[in-house]
Structure formats: structure tokens, C-alpha cells
Nucleic acid binder design. Structure first.
Lengths: 297, 297
DNA sequence: TCTAACAATAAGGTTTCCTTATCATGCTTC
DNA sequence: GAAGCATGATAAGGAAACCTTATTGTTAGA
């Protein structure tokens, strides 16, 4: 029914009309003159009307028919539309642009990602990044609901997440956090039983100890603080001690001390989680690759 | 640099994604399944990214990648744009639409064109027609200035209009117009000398006699009336007689009589005038063809 | 009148695209 | 759980679209 106009053909048409000649257009198209002649003729046949004034009687310069004149702006628009889309897609597939959404647990978000993201977006000025931080469960939910392209979190029960692919990256050692000057502060490592005689504040990460021999500590603890800012403030005030993964420990703290838990030695593995059956958008894949590369050494 | 996305390819892509399968899309495209596979692969290569989820592991229905998902609406838009333009041009080249402007001398405009135009536009409901009527000089001017696609008029000095193409159609015989019951009214034909004894009213068409042996009549005439309505009224009132071309004579007049001028026999040829170096728009060309066909017999 | 410029046409080669035939894989069904 | 069925990928050959070189025809200008 409707003819299929090829973009190449439209370009030829526009060039002939703008350069006022088949030879000039041929040169621009990196084709020979007969190729352009045929291309134009084919287009004319498809449209059912001549686009240029009778070309056998060369009384004058190559000129558009009224029909061709009517067609010209439309052809230009269509070409422009095509090019806009083609360019969009090229930029996207070269991850020079687009939209990237990720979620991360706060520890990595604050300690590791800033550096990496800064480097990553350095030469991608038009990439828009949406970033969420929350605890591991929430991050997993966002991955599941496809609210984010991928998540950075801990995968507690790996067998419950067969629909997701987990790529471990960071080994996060659990340790004891206490004020400097605290009896435990100068040790190289502590045994869980050492903690029983101190006031222990549990927090969101405490359940990492659940399946270890240190689990009795959890019952022992009177206080639970979910908010990290409050937790730090209480520790600094000498209210007690807590356990935290290394990456959740505020790096530049001058008042607190991190002492690795030696027995049991507990580490959580933090990594990238994505849905198994979905591939990532180009910029998301690029960021994943970049993170892997930056943390490989 | 930028790849050339073919509309056909985009259609294949949209169909595969909408029908959720290569076979279904192949059927819709009247192609075989491998053709669609190759088409899609080619498109993916051009864009630099996969559009559908890994197709080797058929864990699930054919599904878009995020990249493909991003591309889908854009592809649809581009196809729609293409089709819109293609349809526009087809309608225009089948003169089903568009704008047609013509000018005609009043005689043909009132006596011949109404019938023809009515038939012509009968099955072209969306064709817009602008119609002007004026004397031959004005019609020629409008053709020259390209205010109209073509004109219908008399070409008095053909040699002065080498830039125009004239296609004669109607032979318009000059005659004498007088009230019924007038001494001349019952004659089959009159000689110019017969007119000298009657009061002659000249009008816009009188100069057609200029280059004939009847030219002395023009000096003989005391009255000049340019407006046709007034002229008719004066004739009906028995004010005098006049000369008119047959087509300018009001056909259904019951009070006036047309008597051909026998000596000299003067005819003006009325026809279609267009610019030589410009071709007509499709609807204009169609109307010209239609007029020629309708008046051929 | 001759020449240069431009586009149309002809004939043959290349590339692109499509087809048939076949394969690999997973889902369904008994 | 093996057989059949459906899906899409792949291979190879052929058809169609496309481009090229060579040539012709027409017009404009020297």
C-alpha cells in the first residue's frame, strides 16, 4: 500500500535539490551520478510524481516541481528525526548518556562509591544518575521491583534469591567499635566473650552475628539504635560499644576505634545484585564494569 | 558515522516486540523467520546493543532489553512519522488532497466550469479549490505571478507569451446580441455593415474586433459598458445592441437573442494557460486532464 | 559549429536481503 | 524422563536491490 521511503533516498533528494545538481549530490553522497539518477527516479516512482522539472529538456538549472517543493521540507524533517534517534541510541549504547539508577547500602555508599562515581562520571557529562541508599533488604526490594538497574548490598540468604545474580566485591570484616581510651581500644583483635562485660548497643548490622557463635551477644544487648548518626553520637558519649562492619565505620573518626572481631571472624560480602533475566542498560553495565575494574586490585 | 536505520527494520523490531515472537513478526511482515532474525541482528549491530534478551537461553518469552525498551517508542514514532509523510504524498499525487488554484474568464467560468468542477471534485472531498474570475489580461497576470496554478482565458497576442503554454479548447464565436423582436433578431447571421444603423454598446470583449474588417464599428459606438449585468439590463431595456462571444452570452436568456456575426467571422480561442517551465501540482494536472477529456467530443 | 556540462540510459558486477534447510534449546506431555 | 513441539539461530545458495563504468543525448556557451 504505502511505499517505503528509504532515508538514503531522501538524503539524495535533499542534496540534489539543495546543491541544484545530480553531480554535486553524487559527490556528497560518495556515489556516482547515475546512482543518484536511479535513486531519485525510484523515489519518484514510489511517490507517483516527478520531483524535479523535466530533465530531458535542460532549459534551466535542476529545479523542483511544485510536488517536489511540497515534499522537500517533509523529507528534511524525516531525515532529522531519524538522525536524532540514531544519535540518541548511539550515545546510549556508548553509555555517553542516559539514565542510571542504583541503590546501595550506606556503608559502601559513603565510604567507597563517592570516589568511584566521581571518576566514572568525569567524562560522561550528560549521564543522569539517580542514587538511593538504604539497608540491604530495601536495596534488594528495589532491585526486585526494577526501581533500580542494580543494587549494592549484602546477600544474607543467597539461596532465597535465585532470581538474582550476585557478584561479591568487598569483604567487610565485622569489628567492635568503642571510644578511644576504652579498655578494648588498644587490642589487635577481640574475642566475642570479651564483649560480655561491656554495655553493647546493637544496630541494624548486628544480625550478621546471628548465625555465628557470637549470637548470645544479641540477647545480652539492652539497646538497639537503627540510626547511624545517633549510634555514633552515643558511642562517642561513652554510652557503650557496638559491632559494625568495617565499611560502616566512619573512616575519619578521631574519637572512635575499630577493633576487628577475632573470634568468631565474621565477614559480610558486599557486592552487586541484579536480576538474572534482565540485562543492564549500557550505562549501568558500564558502571558495573567500572566498579569491578576499580576494586580488582 | 551514524547508522542508517531502515524503516522496514524498525517495523520488524516493533512487530517482534509487540507480537512477542520472531515467527509471529515474520508472518506479519510476509517474510520467513530467519529474515526477521537477520534483520533484528543487523539492527542490533548498527545500534551497538542487543534489543532482545539473550535468545540462546530460552528461559522465557521473547523480551526486550532495557535498551530495546528505550528504543521501542522512538522506533514507533519514527515509523509513524514516515507513514504520515508517505500517506500525505500519496494522497497528493493521487490528487485526493492539496490545494488547487485557478483563474478563468467569466464566460467560461459561468457557462462551462461549474459543471466540470462539480464532476471533478465529486470524489475528491478533501481537495481545496480556490477559484478566481477576471478578464483575460488579469488571468494571464495571475498565471505569470504564479498566483494560480493555471488560467483559462483567451491569448490575444500569442507571440508575447513565449513563456507560457497555451492549449486551446473552446472556439468562441462572436455574435450580435439584441432584444427578441429586434430587426436583426430573426437573421441567421449578420454582416458587420448591418450594425451600423443600430445603436451599438461596446464592452470588454469588443476589442476582439480590433484586428478585423469590422473595426470601424468600434469608433461608431457611443457607449461602453464594462459590467456584464448592466450591459444585459441595457440591452433588455432596448437601449441598443452589442457584440459578445457566444460563451459570454447568458445562456438561458428569454429576452435576448444571439445572432452570429457572419462577416467577418470572428472567433476567439479560449484555453488553458500555464507557465512553460513549471509543471503543475498533481491535482492541477488532474483537473487540466479532466477538462480536456470532458471537452474533447 | 564545436565543446563542455549535465543528466539519462545500458550493461554488468557487488552487496544486500531473503529463502530453504538444518540445528540447538527449552517447554510440554504422557 | 523421553518424545514431540515450539522457539530462534545458523548456513548456504539464489534473487533483488544497488552501484559502477561506459555511452548517448541535449543544451549552453565559446
Amino acid at each position: 500500500m504505502l511505499p517505503e521511503l528509504k532515508v538514503t533516498q531522501l538524503r539524495h533528494f535533499v542534496w540534489v535539490s539543495e546543491l541544484k545538481g545530480f553531480h554535486a549530490a553524487a559527490e556528497k553522497a560518495h556515489r556516482t551520478q547515475p546512482a543518484i539518477s536511479l535513486s531519485i527516479r525510484d523515489l519518484e516512482n514510489k511517490l507517483g510524481e516527478g520531483l524535479f522539472e523535466k530533465r530531458n529538456a535542460r532549459t534551466t538549472k535542476t529545479e523542483l516541481t511544485p510536488f517536489g517543493n511540497y515534499f522537500l521540507p517533509k523529507a528534511k524533517e524525516l531525515i532529522a528525526h531519524h538522525d536524532r534517534i540514531a544519535e540518541d541510541m548511539m550515545l546510549l549504547s556508548e553509555h555517553k548518556t542516559g539514565h542510571l539508577r542504583l541503590a546501595s547500602v550506606p556503608s559502601i555508599a559513603s565510604r567507597v562509591l563517592p570516589d568511584i562515581l566521581l571518576k566514572f562520571i568525569a567524562n560522561l557529562p550528560s549521564l543522569h544518575v539517580s542514587f538511593y541508599d538504604d539497608n540491604s533488604d530495601a536495596v534488594l526490594k528495589m532491585v526486585e521491583n526494577q526501581q533500580v538497574d542494580f543494587g549494592i548490598c549484602h546477600l544474607l540468604h543467597e539461596q532465597d534469591h535465585s532470581d538474582k545474580a550476585f557478584t561479591p566485591i568487598w569483604e567487610d570484616r565485622i569489628g567492635v567499635v568503642c571510644p578511644k581510651g576504652h579498655p578494648l581500644a588498644d587490642k589487635q583483635g577481640v574475642h566475642w566473650k570479651d564483649l560480655r562485660q561491656h554495655r553493647l548497643i546493637s544496630n541494624g548490622t548486628s544480625r550478621l552475628l546471628e548465625d555465628t557463635e557470637a549470637h548470645p551477644l544479641l540477647g545480652h544487648s539492652q539497646f538497639y539504635v537503627s540510626n547511624m548518626i545517633s549510634l555514633i553520637a552515643m558511642l562517642e558519649a561513652g554510652f557503650g560499644i557496638t559491632t559494625l562492619p568495617w565499611y560502616a565505620f566512619p573512616k575519619e573518626s578521631t574519637t572512635l576505634q575499630f577493633v576487628p572481631l577475632e573470634a568468631p571472624e565474621v565477614t559480610r560480602r558486599i557486592g552487586i545484585v541484579k536480576l538474572n533475566n534482565k540485562s543492564l542498560t549500557p550505562p549501568a553495565q558500564a558502571l558495573v564494569d567500572f566498579i569491578l575494574e576499580q576494586t580488582k586490585k
